[in-house]
Write a protein that binds this DNA or RNA. Structure first.
Length: 477
RNA sequence: GGGGCAGUAGGGUAGCCUGGUCCAUCCUAGAGCGUUUGGGACGCUUUGACGGCAGUUCGAAUCUGCCCUGCCCCA
């Protein structure tokens, strides 16, 4: 395990900052000797565990959790033509068992449609089997050729939460897309991460989907990070995999499907959106340690202070907080830096002065210091943490708002995407999209924007002057 | 996809061109002992490395080849 001393690069230098915080805050170790694969430190994994706990709770309201195999036979994988096209260049293949070549090569799932849908074909018989809503949290593999980056561009995505739903009608499936978007919004609200929802351009949709609606956030360097996608699959896959049901009239009908996913990019977003020059800043909702108690040990009152700190710890634990008493033989200042790096939302200090005054000192990760009465300490901490979470939401929201710039010309757009997201009018054609992308060195993120930070309007396309509507342009991860 | 540069202990570096010691060095690194403790303490003792595989050689961190990993530039 690494020590946390030393200076983190300033967050202004985001790329450097991101690389260093991952190991200094014990999130990921990037030294695993295979490109694109990284190791979760226990602390990083504990953050993941809490975040995915929230996600699971959301899914469990209306989905059932399942688990499909990692390996997909080539014969199934190759059935859906557009789907294959989207993935064939980045699939890992298992070709041997020991020294023997396999008759049918097995793909390491890059996503699980082709593993799940053949089984759906067997499971779904009647309209009474519908709707079917399953999800799984699994690892997936993609042979990325571009620059890999921990939590963001991986060859093994270790935490892919993918849901696959099946419906009797296209309308029902379309409605499910909206339900999924609602769940994802709720999830990111819990993580205090602001998002923009938009419809991806046709050429950027999921291979095999009718349309894709994406959830993006804006990183500190102004690039967008896709942190969730919801796909309307229509009946493409049901026709390929022969997923049919007998309707009330006794006739066979193809089903309509959706799928939607979130990966550990959600963790990258939490780290990047909230972190600062001192390290991680974790929302209480996902912090593995919500409250750290630092006893201020002074010479002969050592035992007294330690037992006061122990009593506090027990009180917090009984109240349901994830609490940690740091009784290590270190100077208090060193402990402060240690826990600040790891993003602990609240620090409680107890020393002789506090014992005499019957108080404790509470300091939030954002630096707000409060002296609390020892008696109502649990209630006091509860409300401080609540406010702290709210503060994170507001700060992050404001930071994102500041990076969204409405642009009317190519020049304005080019300037805007240097450190943020541009909102421009675009006619929707691929030709104009390419013109814009080349001119401003950024990508069309989407249209049909849904964000209370962005006012959508109609206007002349920034490229051709024809009828256009608001679209997002940004550099992307 | 094309090109360039690099990899030395937990982290940071020197040495490499021009092969040769008992010991390379720095740190907010590790282990141990003691004194300390309201924002990164100090002293002493000590541990630990030349990315991997092969080759050349009496001898390789140093030269050659391949591989892996990382970074930068171009498409």
């Amino acid at each position: 395990m690494e020590e946390d001393t030393g200076v983190l690069p300033r967050k202004d230098d985001f790329s450097q900052w991101y690389n260093e915080i991952l190991w200094r805050a014990e999130v990921m170790d990037v030294r695993y000797p295979v490109k694109g694969l990284y190791v979760w430190y226990p602390h990083g994994f504990a953050v993941r565990k809490r975040a995915y706990g929230i996600l699971r709770d959301l899914m469990d309201r209306d989905h059932a959790e399942t688990m499909f195999p990692l390996l997909i036979p080539e014969t199934e994988f190759m059935k859906e033509a557009t789907h294959i096209k989207g993935f064939e260049d980045e699939v890992y293949w298992v070709t041997h068992g020991g020294r023997n070549e396999l008759d049918v090569p097995l793909a390491l799932r890059p996503t699980s449609e082709t593993a799940i849908y053949p089984m759906y074909s067997l499971w779904i018989r009647s309209h009474t089997d519908l709707p079917l809503k399953l999800y799984q949290v699994v690892n997936t593999f993609r042979y990325e050729t571009k620059h890999t980056r921990p939590l963001i561009r991986l060859r093994e995505i270790t935490s892919f939460k993918e849901a696959h739903t099946v419906h009797a009608t296209r309308e029902e499936a379309a409605a499910q897309v909206e339900v999924a978007l609602g769940l994802y919004r709720e999830f990111y609200d819990s993580l205090r991460v602001p998002v923009i929802v938009s419809r991806r351009p046709a050429w950027d949709k999921f291979p095999g989907a009718d349309y894709t609606i994406a959830v993006d956030t804006v990183m500190p360097d102004g690039k967008t990070l896709q942190i969730g996608t919801v796909h309307m699959l229509g009946d493409h896959f049901s026709r390929t995999y022969d997923i049919t049901y007998e309707d009330a009239n006794g006739e066979q009908q193809y089903v309509y499907q959706t799928c939607y996913g979130i990966s550990e990019r959600s963790i990258a977003a939490v780290i990047s959106v909230h972190g600062d020059d001192k390290g991680l800043v974790l929302p209480p909702e996902v912090a593995p340690i919500e409250v750290v108690i630092v006893p201020i040990i002074v010479g002969k009152r050592r035992d007294e202070v330690l037992s006061a700190a122990g009593a506090l710890e027990e009180e917090f634990r009984n109240a349901g907080f994830a609490v940690k008493l740091d009784a290590r033989e270190m100077r208090p200042g060193a402990k402060y830096y240690h826990w600040e790096m790891r993003g602990v939302p609240l620090r409680i200090e107890v020393g002789p002065r506090d014992i005499d005054a019957n108080t404790v000192v509470a300091v939030t990760r954002s630096g707000k210091k409060t002296t609390l009465d020892r008696r109502g300490v649990v209630e006091g901490v509860c409300s401080i943490l609540g406010e702290f979470g709210e503060e994170l939401s507001q700060t992050a929201r404001q930071a994102m708002a500041d990076r969204i710039i409405v642009a009317a010309t190519m020049e304005e757009t080019a300037a805007a995407v240097k450190n943020g997201v541009a909102v421009v009018h675009w006619c929707g054609s691929q030709e104009c999209a390419e013109k814009i992308e080349t001119a401003v060195d950024a990508s069309i993120i989407g249209s049909d924007i849904r964000s209370d930070l962005i006012a959508v309007s109609d206007g002349p396309c920034v490229a051709c002057g024809g009828n256009g509507t608001s679209a997002l342009i940004a550099r992307t991860y």
